[in-house]
């Protein structure tokens, strides 16, 4: 257990926590936007998964991991568009639609993967998104490996935290978004289009989740595995509650979950006497505990899950 006390261990753990937090962070930022606009997007798990597949496919096809990221984003947005049509235009139940979106993503990625790549023993791969070592900063001891030798999408995630915060609280878009999620009728009565705002929020959510998915399939190993989102979208739902619908909170909560995952991998490698399953359930148990501990102290957007019907038109 000496290993656990070494500096290398901790630096590695924190760096891994931030890396593993990234897909959860991207998804939860998207979910914050959707929920702040009044849409509970359970389908975010599917959007993450389809983003992973779309990203992999685009990178594999074009040879450019960046086009892959774009592909992941578009795939996520495509599913989000369908979800938005059902929940916003048709005002169908958001939870049911979310379940449907997850099932669809599961089917589409499984089917697509098997049809396109066949049932070969050779695992197909795509050009991965290489880490960026930020010149100068990457050499700083401790901080360098933790913060400045990461995947570009990790940096993107951090930038998006600030961007989301700024958008929500310092722009007219954010004001409209928050108003729509709290009291859509009031927003409508001053000429804010509830439908437009909600569509934009859900599409942004799908896009962000799609990028998060692309991170899963394009960073490091660069391959697609069926069901590779493994519940990270659902964890993002918990992160949003834990973060009280605030982007900065989402950063902290995501890193916490990333750390749980990183710790699991590390303990798995270090301590053979603990069954790996006990460590594997850590993030999920943590989610439940987080959820229970936060109850009553967080207030969700007042119009969450409520469809808005414009009458008289």
């Amino acid at each position: 257990m000496d290993v656990m006390l070494s500096e290398v261990f901790w630096i590695g753990l924190i760096a891994a926590a931030i890396r593993l937090a990234t897909p959860i962070l991207l998804a939860s930022l998207g979910e914050i936007l959707a929920e702040r606009a009044g849409i509970l997007n359970i389908g975010i798990e599917g959007m993450l998964l389809i983003g992973a597949f779309g990203g992999f496919l685009a990178s594999h096809g074009t040879g450019s991991p960046w086009i892959g990221v774009l592909g992941g984003m578009i795939a996520g947005m495509a599913l989000a568009l369908l979800f938005a049509y059902l929940t916003i235009t048709l005002a169908a139940d958001q939870i049911v639609c979310g379940i449907m979106a997850n099932l669809l993503a599961f089917g589409v990625t499984g089917f697509g993967h098997r049809v396109i790549f066949g049932m070969t023993t050779v695992i197909p791969s795509a050009p991965p998104l290489a880490d960026w070592h930020i010149p100068g900063l990457a050499a700083i001891p401790v901080l360098g490996p933790i913060l400045f030798q990461q995947n570009p999408l990790v940096y993107l995630g951090l930038v998006l935290v600030v961007a989301c915060w700024f958008m929500l609280f310092r722009t007219s878009w954010g004001l409209k978004l928050r108003a729509v999620g709290e009291h859509p009728l009031a927003a409508d009565s001053v000429g804010v289009s509830v439908r437009q705002v909600r569509y934009a929020a859900v599409l942004a959510c799908g896009g962000l989740a799609g990028i998060g998915g692309a991170f899963l399939s394009l960073s490091q190993l660069s391959m697609f595995v069926e069901e590779m989102s493994a519940g990270r979208g659902f964890i993002a739902l918990a992160v949003v509650i834990f973060a009280r619908w605030h982007p900065v909170g989402a950063l902290g909560a995501s890193i916490l979950f990333g750390a749980a995952e990183a710790l699991q991998f590390r303990l798995q490698a270090q301590a053979a006497d603990i069954p790996f399953q006990f460590l594997a359930i850590l993030p999920y148990v943590l989610t439940v505990i987080a959820l229970v501990s936060i109850v009553g102290r967080s207030v969700q957007p007042a119009a969450l899950t409520r469809p808005y019907h414009k009458e008289g038109h």
Binding site: L82, L86, L90, A91, A92, D93, V96, C97, I99, M100, A101, L103, L104, F106, G107, V108, G110, F111, R114, V115, M119, E226, H309
Partner: peptide, 29 residues
């Protein structure tokens, strides 16, 4: 054809029922 096609078909069944009943529900409302 991979069996995973069935999941797509299942999801689409839900989608079509959902879309239709939502439309009907809308008229009802």
């Amino acid at each position: 054809v991979p069996v995973t096609l069935v999941y797509i078909i299942q999801a689409l069944v839900v989608l079509f029922v959902l879309a239709r009943s939502a439309l009907e529900h809308d008229m009802f409302r």
